[in-house]
Amino acid sequence: MGCDIITVSGDTKFVHLAWQTSEQELSAVKYQMGADPTGKLARMFGVWLEDAGVPLRGTFLISPDGTLMNTEINFLNMGRNIDEMMRKFKANMYLAKKATEGCPAKWKEEGDVTLKPSAKMVGKVHEALANDGNPA
């Protein structure tokens, strides 16, 4: 999908190797597994739990120019939903190419209705959503 996924925990690269090669559930994993043993990177993103010494389940999307575009932070016991993540990733990657457009709440993929904020749009979002993005 044009995005490099890097997983990060406080474990070292040696532990990542041991886990990935011993756990059959991870046998198909191809993404880089990053080591942040001091929590320096996790602190930068505000997900390091100082008392527990582990990071929260944080997801961060960074554009090719190095800008943080999206974040989602779940507590330790809440797993991530890949469909939720993919929608937000796709929307951000689409908007990077279409700077004048906005993705409404129901946007799922390229081709879905987008909105172009303008004076004509004011008070007419409902009509625009029903009319291929054009305020009636």
């Binding site: 995005c3 490099d4 890097i6 990060v8 532990v15 527990a52």
Partner: peptide
Amino acid sequence: DFDEVSIEKQKSEGRWTALFFYPADF
């Protein structure tokens, strides 16, 4: 094998990056 990732390299190659933090291996 062991490797390294850096945001500088991602930028120089014009690539999007998604960081997935999780509590711990195993």
